[in-house]
Amino acid sequence: MIAFFIGDSLTLGCGDASGLGWPGRIASAMMHAGHDLTWYNLGVRANTTTKIRERMRTEVTRRFLPGQDTRLILSFGVADIANDVPAALSYDNAEAILAEAMSIGPTLFIGPMPVGDPERTEHIVQLSLGFESVCDRLGVPHVPVIGFLRDSAAYTSALADYDNVHPAAKGYATLADYLLQTHAVRDFLGLE
């Protein structure tokens, strides 16, 4: 299996001194479960949905051969809020990104994460709800994480330990542990 993790700096794992972020932890769990896995972290710092839309297909298709079991895990949205991207444009971009991803292989969406600023987090909550609607319309499995992470003392502490946008390592570990417990992720990655 080839797994592509595509998104912004929270997908990249900025703030994680281990260099794993949540994608590295998911990939590690898959390999420990016996999966023959090649994985790529295609997170790019400050990438809005507009930038992800522009680069995704090219970056993914350069890294696989036709006929391979290719899975795309996407997560984005916080950079849109930080860069004042209008919500309507974020939703249009999300729909185009997810539809393009589905044309390449099975696709999963992980919702955007909270930040240390409550006002910005509320905007992210609203964006996350809109992304869920896009996923439902397209039939893309998705895991909203903002509610769980906003209520997580470990994640909130990890945000404060770094820069209040990106968590330190324990925050990414909290997110990965949560994702690995969801049926959507376990089914999508063949961990059941």
Rank of each mutant, 00 (worst) to 15 (best):
M113H: 11
E54V: 04
D8Y: 11
S75W: 02
R186N: 07
T121Y: 09
T48A: 04
D161S: 14
M56Y: 05
G34L: 09
R137W: 02
D117E: 11
H183W: 08
A160M: 11
G111H: 05
A99H: 08
L72V: 08
Q181D: 11
L74C: 13
Q126Y: 12
R120A: 14
D16R: 13
R55E: 10
N47E: 14
G67W: 03
E122A: 15
D187A: 13
D84Y: 10
I110W: 09
L65C: 11
V134E: 03
M113Q: 15
V165L: 14
R186V: 03
L12K: 15
T174R: 10
Q181P: 00
D161Q: 15
P23F: 10
Y91T: 01
I81K: 14
V78Q: 06
L10I: 12
H183Y: 08
A99F: 04
T38G: 10
M31A: 13
H32G: 09
T11Y: 12
G139Y: 03
S128L: 07
R45H: 12
H166S: 05
F4S: 06
L89Q: 15
T11E: 12
W39L: 07
P23N: 08
P167E: 01
E95F: 05
A27Q: 10
L179H: 00
D80E: 06
G147H: 09
V134W: 03
E132I: 08
G139P: 01
T121A: 11
M102K: 12
G139M: 03
A99K: 12
T38Y: 07
A33C: 08
S157Y: 08
F109I: 05
R62Y: 06
L159N: 04
P114R: 07
G15T: 09
L12F: 15
I26T: 12
P118M: 10
V85D: 08
L127R: 13
L129W: 13
R63Y: 09
V145F: 02
G171T: 00
N83T: 05
C135N: 03
P112Y: 06
S152G: 04
M102S: 09
T70C: 14
A46V: 08
Y172Q: 04
W39S: 10
S9G: 15
P86H: 02
S133E: 15
D151Y: 03
S90G: 09
D84Q: 14
G13R: 10
D92S: 14
A153M: 06
D36N: 13
S75I: 02
E100L: 09
A99R: 15
R25P: 04
V185R: 00
C135H: 01
S103K: 09
L42E: 14
E95H: 12
L37K: 06
V145G: 01
D177P: 02
G77K: 05
D69I: 00
L189R: 00
A79T: 03
P86E: 05
L127K: 07
H142K: 09
L74E: 01
